[in-house]
């Protein structure tokens, strides 16, 4: 199939148009973070750096940010371990119920967040009698983060095949040695990509979090939601959003570099 020149240009123009629509609201957030107006007036009546100054001294926001980092890190570590285990089990073994296990992994993300949220809320509170807090959030987040790691690792295992692992075993390496020296290096970038997605997913999650956080624990999204409609806090929210987007460039760039370096030439 040869695409004609007009077709290529149309596709390119469409892509650019959609990207513009995608970035305009983010641009509005950026501009509003410098706006003297606290309501949503466009164009902004004046320029100020006040919000950028106060944002970095806002204790509530900073402690919520720290909570979110901790929750997301723990959830990512748990989902890395569990996701890799399931992926190896499903990709390297065939057994009865394999399809069901794969469905089970997908289910927490395939079902709407509100379902996961209320189910876990009910289970933690009514059935197990636990106090909602930091660890119930971690458990909830890890549950729906497993799938991102699982998908990345499974795709990688499918692509690499078993030749190298078999060669390693033939050369006398034990299971652990083979995993450490052969399988793991092949999985490394898939684990990074999956872990990154898991972290992002957990970091930004609000629906399941509202149901599993209780009153004492505030993650960044919960803090944002509490402050979004307060006139003197909304500009600070804009600042935080801008910082997050800019900071997120680093891991995305690294992930892309790794994926690009490993790509087999077509």
């Amino acid at each position: 199939m040869r695409l004609s020149r007009p077709a290529r240009i149309t596709l390119g123009a469409l892509t650019i148009a959609v990207l513009i629509v995608v970035y305009v609201p983010l641009f509005v957030v950026l501009v509003n973070s410098f706006s003297t107006s606290q309501s949503l007036v466009w164009p902004p009546p004046g320029f100020t750096l006040e919000w950028w100054g106060t944002a970095f001294q806002n204790r509530g926001a900073l402690s919520a940010l720290w909570t979110s980092v901790q929750v997301a890190s723990l959830a990512t570590v748990i989902s890395l371990v569990l996701g890799t285990l399931v992926a190896i089990a499903l990709q390297r073994h065939s057994f009865f119920g394999r399809q069901s296990v794969s469905l089970l992994v997908i289910l927490p993300i395939a079902l709407p967040g509100i379902v996961t949220g209320i189910a876990l809320n009910n289970a933690f509170r009514t059935i197990l009698g636990l106090q909602l807090g930091f660890f119930t959030i971690v458990v909830a987040h890890a549950t729906f983060c497993i799938v991102t790691v699982f998908n990345n690792v499974q795709a990688r295992l499918r692509r690499t095949g078993t030749n190298l692992e078999e060669a390693s075993a033939d050369l006398g390496a034990g299971l652990w040695t083979t995993f450490r020296l052969v399988t793991f290096p092949q999985l490394r970038s898939a684990l990074f990509a999956g872990g990154l997605l898991a972290f992002a997913l957990s970091f930004d999650e609000i629906i399941v979090t509202t149901f599993t956080a209780g009153v004492g624990t505030t993650t960044l999204p919960i803090w944002i939601f509490q402050n979004l409609f307060r006139p003197n806090q909304a500009p600070v929210v804009n600042v935080i959003a801008v910082v997050l987007v800019v900071v997120s460039l680093v891991p995305i760039y690294i992930a892309q570099r790794i994926a690009g370096a490993e790509r087999v030439p077509k």
């Binding site: 992002a200 999204p221 944002i224 939601f225 804009n238 935080i240 995305i252």
Partner: peptide, 9 residues
């Protein structure tokens, strides 16, 4: 990249 901007924002 937009995925990293908070859903709420």
């Amino acid at each position: 990249m937009p995925l990293w901007a908070s859903y709420l924002v």
